[in-house]
Design a protein around this nucleic acid. Structure first.
Lengths: 151, 151
DNA sequence: TCAGTATAGTTGCATATGCAATAACTTGTC
DNA sequence: GACAAGTTATTGCATATGCAACTATACTGA
């Protein structure tokens, strides 16, 4: 008993959360670096553009971006500042609510996102598809969805 | 066709990576905030202490910590600086290699880690165990392990 | 209509972190 | 044994981010 071990550092649930944390960190680093290398687009920017494109209207309010990308609202303000300065999105006033801002993707943003998606898909092939079968991927999706539900 | 959609923003693999990213972010935020609230221990500190305790010798070199916690070596230097300043670990010279540093957990560190593990386990119960069955958790562990393998 | 409360977004400030350069040391090769 | 190349940790610098305070606007009930 060289070290205190009253609490189970090897508990199955503790291990699982650690594995999730580590897997995400490694994958994000690797994919983020490749994306930046290939398209000069930081992963958080990619995330924002993707979230916006996925809406039917092609725009999202600041709060929705913050929630979708899991950032604070303050962080989102600065993040959108940078993406807007690069010309990939633009802020627009919301007619119904003068407090709110609509963030819309620009033509340049759409073009950059297409480029990034193409590169991203290539990277995902080697780092994900080569390691998990389609069936395994769909199982993983289902399990993560359960974990991801709101409080 | 309001927006360009040449590239599949809804591709199954893109969605899966996004889900992994988001799930990790939400869980880390939530568990990290609870841990900090309950024990005044930041999640990255917890991670470092846990990695050290899991070794048979109760110590780890800087490089090993950087790798295990998926930080840069520079980031690890500062992270360990802070944890050491709090008294939870200590740097020790490595007899075989004078470049290397052994980081060992202190008594205070062990005590804090026990406290944190207890709280962490409680939080994991509500945020993980209540959402996934033991069987689902073991499946998830297996799938994440596959994704987490080295390049 | 007005007061009180809730919500949306921004800003100041503190801090954590990565990258690249550097210093100290080790290892392998001749 | 000495030099080249590799490894280990630290530091300067730039940047991203969260928190809390703040402003502006919307809603709710009397």
């Amino acid at each position: 008993m060289s070290t205190t071990s009253a609490c189970p550092s090897g508990d199955e649930k503790v291990m699982l959360f650690g594995l999730l944390f580590e897997t995400n960190a490694r994958l994000s680093r690797s994919l983020g670096a490749q994306l930046e290398e290939a398209c000069d687009l930081p992963l958080p920017w990619f995330d924002v553009l993707l979230q916006i494109r996925r809406t039917p209207e092609g725009r999202l309010k600041m709060t929705q971006i913050a929630d979708a990308t899991v950032h604070s609202t303050g962080g989102t303000t600065r993040l959108v500042d940078r993406i807007e300065a690069a010309g990939y999105v633009e802020r627009m006033n919301c007619p119904n609510d003068r407090r709110a801002i609509h963030v819309a993707i620009t033509d340049a943003g759409n073009q950059k996102l297409d480029e990034a998606l193409e590169a991203h898909l290539g990277h995902l092939q080697s780092q994900m598809a080569d390691r998990l079968t389609p069936k395994e991927r769909s199982t993983l999706t289902a399990l993560l969805s359960k974990l991801n539900s709101e409080d």
